[in-house]
Amino acid sequence: MIPQIEIDKNKCATPYECKKCLQICPQAVFAVAPTKVERFKETAPEDYEVQAVFKDKCVLCMDCVKVCPTGAIKVKVGSS
């Protein structure tokens, strides 16, 4: 039974610069990466996306929900 973690992309605009959830999570559940990579170019901050990749590791401590400045993260007990 894996917890459900939803991130509202509209509220989470520049995750790589904010990085609060990524750094607070005791289980290192999140990952942030560019959605596109081009030659000779750095990816713009708004072209990054954060996802709860390792959600099977989540213990529902809710630290990420509390730390998120825009209220973009929702964590729920998963249904099996």
């Binding site: 039974m1 894996i2 990952a31 560019p34 959605t35 596109k36 081009e38 996306e49 959600k55």
Partner: peptide, 22 residues
Amino acid sequence: EPMILTELQGPFYYKPLIELKD
């Protein structure tokens, strides 16, 4: 054209693996 590297299509490359765990 060189292959576009998106860091393993992002770490999201692993996403299906993790979501399938149950």
